[in-house]
Structures are given as structure tokens and as C-alpha cells.
């Protein structure tokens, strides 16, 4: 990871200048926290009529708690974080998630069977091999845009 703020900015600038997609991770210095997003991926959709799902991890490398409060994406007219819960009887259901607090030094994972980015009213299909931008909204006003690669419909994780 980057040792200093200057290094981070330099690396980001270089990446931006070179037009690199920064698909595997993105980070940004906000007022009170380092927010590091890693391993984003989405599952290919079948057309646009059913909701898509995307996953990632967020680390808080700052000194204060921060909450992930929402999502925005051009590819979806209704993007939000949902949570799947499976009870002790093996019954799963899904509901919109509350704000997700990440303590200093902590991490949250959006992964199958837990939190996920639910992308409803897709404006274009999620096509395997393509990427799309997704903006994460945080409680301190930080808006972090990341690039999400689309994996196959049978993907079970960021490695496929």
C-alpha cells in the first residue's frame, strides 16, 4: 500500500494519465479517512429485466468510523445496498441494508450471501468482459467512483 499521501496521489495521477481502468482497486483520501475499495466484481446479467448484483470490499484505513450509506450508478436507475440473511433453518431472504459502519482499521465485504449492490432498472445489460462505473456514497460526504469488471453469470467470487 502507499506509504504517503504524495505517493498515493502520484500513483493515482499516473494511473489516470495513462488511462488505466484501476479495475482491481481504487482509493481516495477523504477528510477523515482512507477508504480503500478492493476486488469489485459484478455478475453478468441476462438482459435488463432482472436486477444485477455487484460485490466488493471496503477498508477504512483512517482514524474515524465511516459509514457506507448508498450507491449510485449510471447503469442502474435504482442502485442500493441489500442484505441477504439466512436463518438457522436455511431460509434466505433479502432486504435493503441500513448504513454500514466501518470502524477505523476495519473492513466490510459485499459478498454473495451477505451485503450486495443490487442494481435494479438496468439501463444496459451487464456484459461479461466489460466494466461499468459505480459510485460509493459515504457518511462524510465522500463519493468514490470505482470501476467494476463484469464476470460470467456463473461467477462465485472476484476470481470468477
Amino acid at each position: 500500500m502507499f506509504k504517503t499521501f504524495a505517493n498515493a496521489i502520484q500513483s493515482l495521477s499516473v494511473a489516470l494519465l495513462m488511462g488505466l481502468p484501476m479495475a482491481s482497486s481504487a482509493q481516495q483520501l477523504s477528510d477523515n479517512a482512507w477508504i480503500v475499495v478492493e476486488s469489485p466484481w459484478a455478475r453478468a446479467s441476462l438482459g435488463m429485466s432482472r436486477p444485477g448484483g455487484a460485490y466488493l470490499t471496503v477498508r477504512n484505513e483512517g482514524n474515524d468510523p465511516i459509514s457506507l450509506i448508498g450507491l449510485r450508478a449510471k447503469i442502474s436507475d435504482m442502485a442500493s445496498i441489500h442484505e441477504t440473511r439466512t436463518n438457522s433453518d436455511g431460509v434466505s431472504s433479502m432486504a435493503p441494508a441500513d448504513d454500514i459502519m466501518i470502524p477505523p482499521g476495519g473492513m466490510i465485504a459485499l459478498e454473495p450471501g451477505g451485503y450486495h449492490a443490487m442494481l435494479m432498472q438496468l439501463q444496459s445489460p451487464l456484459v461479461e468482459g466489460e466494466t461499468f462505473p459505480l459510485t460509493l456514497l459515504f457518511s462524510d460526504g465522500t463519493e468514490l467512483e470505482i470501476t467494476v469488471p463484469v464476470l460470467g453469470i456463473g461467477a462465485r467470487g472476484p476470481e470468477g
Binding site: R50, P51, M78, G90, V91, S93, M94, A95, M120
Partner: peptide
């Protein structure tokens, strides 16, 4: 197995399903 329709305004068509996932 168990399944149930759950009214959910933010879901497509206004509902989602809870179900045994095993």
C-alpha cells in the same frame, strides 16, 4: 421447504421471495 412472498417496495414488481436456500 419454506417460501414466502415478501412485499418490498424497492424490489422489482414490489416483492421478493424468502425461501429455503439449502
Amino acid at each position: 421447504i419454506y417460501y414466502q412472498k415478501i412485499e418490498e417496495a424497492s424490489a422489482p414488481d414490489g416483492y421478493t421471495m424468502g425461501h429455503t436456500s439449502s
